[in-house]
Amino acid sequence: MSWLASHFNYVIVVALMMAGLFIVFSSGNLIKRMIGLALFQSSTGLFYISLSKVSGATAAITLDAGSVDGKALASQLDPAYVQQFGVDGVVYANPLPHVLILTAIVVGVATLAVGLAIAVRVREAYGTVEADEIEALSRVTAEQAEPAR
């Protein structure tokens, strides 16, 4: 039970990843596959952010850590305390995964846009966005490459 409590986020994130991947691989509709892909990509964001959660922390917007006042305050405090809680006694969130996931979200929308643009062109060329119909029509194209007998 305590394992579930301390790893609850990861369990849900894994379930979300599975949902996204399942849509990608099981769906024949190209648009639906892109939706699944977006879900899958977004779940990695949840994974990184869950990793970086610091209990009782606040957003990493520091106001005076390291400033002249902050240094004066820090000199009066126990270094071990400063190490853990910062000079102003506030615990800040770990900023690094936030930066990475900002990047990942933006990459995700870029992929989504290009993928959907290609899907639109598939529809214009094949008249459908269902993978099995596209495959059947592609086979026709391949056979057209055969010489007329």
Partner: peptide, 30 residues
Amino acid sequence: DRRALPAAFNYLILGTVGATLYVIGVGFLY
């Protein structure tokens, strides 16, 4: 050759899944 379109779409899906799996892996190492 219109088959380029579904080929590119497939590449996009698989390539993105690959890149995302890579990111998950890097997350574990991180």
